[in-house]
Amino acid sequence: MSMLSLTYSKRSAIFFPDPRGVSDSANALQGQSEELQRHFAQSITFGEHLCEMLENLLKAKEEYSVDNWDGYGAKAIDEFSYEKAVRFALSLPSIIPTPEIHVDPDGEVRFEWYEGPRRVFSVSIANNYELSYAGLFGANKTYGIEQFHDDIPDAILDNIERVFSKGIYLGTTQRG
């Protein structure tokens, strides 16, 4: 029996480090790098599902822009969480399937990868550098907090991979 092992870079093809500078030049450079990432996202080869994610983020920003969107006192989408979520989306390796995007009652943006009721993983982006995550994989469970600065932590990417343990094929899931 032979087995093909598919490996992929855990870093986005369009990775740029999180800016640490505070000068005008650093801010300008950051603006340019994000613009470049967005242009790259529009390329047919690499950017189709990234574009979809960014569009869904924009829709969420509009839909959850006011407090009490659920009738139970939910907070409007947090601006900083939204900005970090865009950065998170741009940092995802292109091979990762497109997640659903939600906004939680605390205003944080949440990404969810769902293959079934007990094969699901979600990551919530806080308005600091924290990523809260939880997942169900059959009888197994996981939850925790990771820091998000330059890279998406391996713990997050590994758990996304667990959802699609039957295989990830270029931004979509293997069916059947």
Binding site: S132, Y133, I145
Partner: peptide
């Protein structure tokens, strides 16, 4: 804690 809330909500 948010991660525990998320796990329970998922369950």
């Amino acid at each position: 804690e948010k991660p525990r809330q998320m796990l329970i909500a998922t369950e």
